[in-house]
Amino acid sequence: MKRNKTWGGLNAIFMLLLMLNQAQAGVIFGIGATFPKQVYQEWGKQYKAETGSALAYFAQGSGKGIEAILAGKADFGASDKPLIFEELEKSKLMQFPALIGGVVPVVNIKKIGDGQLQLDGVILADIYLGKIRRWNDQAIVALNPGLALPDEAIDVMHRSDSSGSTFVLTDYLSKVSSEWKTTMGAATAVAWKVGEGVDGGDNLAKKIGNTPNSIGYLDPSVVQQRHLTFVKMRNRDGKYVSPNQASFAAAAKNAEWSASNGFNQSLTDQIGSESWPLATATYIIISRSPAEASGTEEALKYFDWTFRKGNLIAQDLGFVLIPPEAMQSVRDSWKMQIKDRAGRPLWK
């Protein structure tokens, strides 16, 4: 019932926007990940100012984004967890990376500021496994000599909804912790052993900000806007790095973007002394044969514009664009794969 009510509400919004927009340029409808929400919406404002076409993006989480495009409820779905090639083929979908960012562990500990607390993947996994329960645990102290850590219980926070950010976190923890891989695995939703679940990234940010001695994970734009305290993470090369555009780009440096597997590329735990270990690409998913071709065509124009003019907005919000060569490969895939019901390409 809850899912039906959700879609009912979204359908009502869509119909209202469609009626209001009949005499104007088209509205592009997108549903999905909260991770890139700020960027997509800021891009949408500038795109409308330049072209007259509007973007209506509903940040419902990656799971809802995949559901939406499968059900034909949107012009595009957005997900931080890419679909595998078999899923794309089965549902006649294509996907491409739109942005590169990173999931950021954050804490709310009195008198500890940005980057002062240092963690590694094993300790982060043990916190979320409930094996490390206090901030002055010897394992944390050993990584932070001289830092005054409180003798307080760790208040663990996580997403309760299906979330691409959760997938990135759990994908990373599965690579660095054999216990995590065996008992928890990588998924958009897992059976958490400890902690409090919160629905949505914005709500999670508010909860962390209001809860002393808490830890959670968020997207960089929310961390920046909420003035939350980020954690430095030790990467695969043993270096402690901060979450920023340079460390996200470093993690993506050696990625091999290929249309043959739907541009599916994991960026967690990448090599490189400057690489952020929880880096990720966030993806757009589009029908290869949409019922409403005009909406899909407008969506392609919007994303082409973001590739050409969206870099400054992306950087201001803590993200970076995909490499230029990947952009061209994406455009080539649009031309080859996305067609109207008569078989005509929607991108030329």
Rank of each mutant, 00 (worst) to 15 (best):
W257V: 12
S174M: 00
I154F: 01
E292G: 00
L10M: 10
L10E: 08
I285G: 05
A153P: 00
R236Q: 14
S174C: 04
M336P: 04
G8I: 07
A246W: 02
W135C: 01
A54Y: 05
I127N: 03
A255E: 04
L321A: 14
I13K: 14
E292T: 06
S275D: 04
I285M: 00
T183P: 02
G26T: 09
G262S: 09
R3L: 07
L169T: 08
G262Q: 02
D332S: 14
T280Y: 03
F307R: 04
A23P: 07
A250G: 08
L173Q: 02
Q95P: 05
V320R: 09
F35H: 09
P277I: 07
I338Q: 01
Q60S: 12
E42L: 11
K5E: 13
G52Y: 10
R159V: 05
E298Y: 02
G318F: 11
V222G: 01
T166N: 13
I313T: 15
A142F: 03
A250V: 01
I100C: 09
S79R: 04
K131A: 15
Y128D: 03
I208W: 00
F230D: 02
E89T: 11
K175P: 01
N21Q: 15
M1P: 11
D269C: 08
G44M: 10
Q245V: 14
Q116Y: 05
A74Y: 03
S287I: 09
K45C: 11
A191P: 05
G146R: 09
T296F: 07
P243E: 08
I84Q: 07
A326V: 14
M233I: 06
G318A: 13
I313P: 04
E196F: 06
I338Y: 03
S258V: 08
V107D: 05
I112W: 06
M19Q: 13
A139P: 02
D199G: 05
Y217N: 11
A191D: 15
E292F: 12
D202I: 14
L119T: 08
I313A: 01
A12M: 14
N244C: 14
A125M: 01
Y57D: 14
M233V: 03
P220W: 11
T268N: 11
K181C: 08
T268G: 02
L143F: 10
Q337N: 15
Q270S: 13
P82G: 06
S91R: 08
F96W: 10
A74D: 05
K175G: 02
G115R: 01
D151R: 07
A54M: 09
W347G: 06
A59T: 10
P345L: 11
L83A: 00
A259H: 07
A12R: 09
F96L: 07
L143M: 11
M327Y: 01
Q95A: 04
S214Y: 09
L218G: 02
K206W: 12
K64I: 12
K253D: 08
N210D: 15
S294H: 09
I66C: 06
D202V: 11
